[in-house]
């Protein structure tokens, strides 16, 4: 230890690396990638493999980022599962059914997400209901509203929309099999990295998740911060909805439910503690990549697709165990010299 204590040495020591919360996620990703690389062969290692899992990673990754921040702050957001179809339905309805300009349709779709996030945030901060329950309730309400409006306006549960070429190329294009949503995802990774690790707000998020009462006493605007985080997750889920409309040129009232568990899984595999207070964007990024590799690697490996659920489940359990170990290590180092 004493060697590390010197004048802020930046050398990478093995011990310090092992204590970083991302290390487990990195090892997990490498193991999973090698496993599928061996089974999947050159096709999985080549462009088709990369594009297929990166496309999956981008969609779930965009949602996992804010869900991860919320989890670090000690909250859950289940409602993302119904925000995705609600936003895509709003965009397709305005753009496809009412022929509104693409920008209006997109902003309206994103607005749906921000509004639902605001409702979530207000309900969580103004009442004592746990966010898990609040967002489950909101999810069902939004699901019902989406279905109701779709049937009322269109008389159908799906709406098609053909975006103009510019919109299509910015939000729904494939380049050699790679979806443009990958770039949206990477851009958001940078934004969230700044928010959590560089800006002072990141400190507030960790503090809120660590001890909300103390954070409030220290003058951190805990309620505003929580509402902002819920709005961020509403926004990102809506963005995925809009990207889906632009990509598939159609919006469905169902679908999106998979994002609930998948985003939580990415976040937990990425080393975020379920109880809040710890986590990192790099970890969430790695967790998302691991999840996507398992999700798509199965097909390249020629395994029974059902095996992916077993692997994902095992990964989740291993991740929670190693997260707990990390926490135990972090809080019990007092005895050492």
């Amino acid at each position: 230890m004493s060697s590390q204590n010197g004048n802020g040495s930046k050398g990478i020591s093995l011990g310090a690396l092992a204590r970083r919360p991302e290390t487990g996620s990195l090892i997990g990703f490498i193991v999973v990638y090698i496993f599928f690389a061996v089974l999947g062969g050159p096709v999985f290692l080549g462009l088709p493999g990369w594009s297929s899992w990166l496309n999956i990673a981008a969609e779930v990754g965009i949602i996992a980022l804010p869900v991860g921040l919320l989890m670090i702050a000690g909250e859950f957001d289940i409602s993302v599962g119904s925000i995705v179809p609600a936003a895509s339905m709003m965009t397709a309805m305005l753009g496809g059914h009412y022929d509104a300009p693409a920008i209006v349709a997109i902003l309206a779709g994103l607005g749906v997400g921000l509004t639902i996030g605001l409702v979530n945030g207000l309900l969580v901060t103004r009442t004592t209901i746990p966010s898990l329950i609040v967002t489950i309730g909101v999810m069902f309400a939004v699901m019902g509203l989406t279905l109701g409006f779709a049937v009322l306006v269109k008389g159908s549960t799906s709406v098609s929309y053909v975006p103009d070429p510019l919109t299509k190329s910015l939000m729904g294009q494939f380049v050699k099999g790679f979806s443009v949503s990958i770039f949206w995802w990477l851009g958001l990774v940078a934004v969230f990295f700044y928010a959590l690790h560089v800006s002072p707000w990141g400190n507030w998020i960790f503090a809120i998740g660590g001890d909300k009462e103390s954070a409030r006493n220290a003058g951190i605007p805990t309620s505003q911060m929580t509402i902002a985080l819920f709005m961020a997750s509403g926004f990102c889920a809506a963005l995925v909805g809009v990207l889906q409309v632009m990509t598939y040129q159609q919006a469905q009232v169902a679908g999106g439910q998979a994002f609930i568990f998948n985003s939580i899984m990415c976040v937990v595999i990425g080393g975020v503690l379920l109880t809040g207070g710890a986590g990192s964007i790099i970890g969430i990024l790695l967790g998302t990549m691991t999840f996507a590799v398992v999700n798509q690697g199965i097909f390249f490996a020629g395994l029974d697709p059902n095996i992916q659920f077993i692997i994902t489940g095992a990964l989740l359990l291993a991740a929670v165990l190693s997260n707990d170990r990390f926490r135990a290590m972090a809080t019990s180092a007092a005895a050492k010299k």
Binding site: N203, W204, A207, G210, E213, N217, I220, A330, T331
Partner: peptide
């Protein structure tokens, strides 16, 4: 009170 176990000394000291 006022300390967050999973945050660094520096971050704790200046929280808020």
């Amino acid at each position: 009170g006022g300390t967050y176990p999973l945050m660094s000394v520096g971050r704790n000291f200046f929280a808020g």
